[in-house]
Design a protein around this nucleic acid. Structure first.
Lengths: 116, 116
DNA sequence: GGCGGCGTTCACGTCCCTTTCACGCCGTCT
DNA sequence: AGACGGCGTGAAAGGGACGTGAACGCCGCC
């Protein structure tokens, strides 16, 4: 039971429109330039939107191999992705950190107010 | 006879939805950010929902070792967990104290509302 | 060759989490 | 009433997880 089929060619989350075949991201209709890693990372998170994805799983999904201890690649690319999403859609938090568990991508709920 | 199987990956109590594999808690569908200890504590209580869990058992389940005399970790984390549940679902008491025995997690009964 | 984007790794700063301590309240017992 | 023990609760201290900027090497392109 999945939110969307794995082989779907379009993922939509909040104002984000992810075109898998083209490798294109649209934020509120405007195209956002992402590198391959950044795009794959976004896709991996988007396919599990609403769920926490561990760094282990994230690394395996995006990099295709097992995460070694001390590897910070995930964090760095989450940061890069956040920066581009922030620039495209200011003030909206898409990627949430769960310390000790992983990252979670969610459409922009209005929790930003209650989060202080 | 248990409420749910021990190896189930989903626990549901009242408005709480505990996703064991992800380490994610949903309160009325909204995600709640918990630390590792807080989450493990909630799971330990949820697996014994309706029953009183002693600090000894609680400490052994969550911390993985035997509770030393004078250790207040359980109390502190029950407090933290209560605070986050209260913020997520105001006015609903989930964790009940049984002085001299331990803690008990229960879904919100309707008496809790009329008692206040 | 020079340039620029990309991926990786490192270093450092910052924030959060965990643990522990301290204080105060509320029962119970004598 | 006073002493004692159990529990709620805030805060300090230490350590660890995460955020973030930058350096390095690689590769394709002008």
């Amino acid at each position: 039971m999945e939110v969307e089929a794995t082989n779907a060619e379009l993922l939509t989350i909040g104002g984000l429109e992810i075109r898998l075949r083209e490798g294109l991201l649209l934020a509120d209709g405007r195209p956002v330039t992402l590198s391959v890693r950044e795009f794959d990372l976004l896709v991996a998170l988007a396919r599990n939107a609403g769920s926490i994805v561990s760094r282990q799983d994230l690394y395996r999904l995006v990099w295709g191999r097992t995460l070694r201890g001390g590897d910070r690649s995930c964090d760095v690319y989450v940061h890069k992705l956040r920066a581009k999403l922030e620039q495209a859609l200011p003030g909206v938090a898409y990627i949430h950190t769960h310390v000790g568990f992983g990252y979670r991508l969610d459409p922009p709920t209005f929790t930003s107010l209650s989060q202080r």
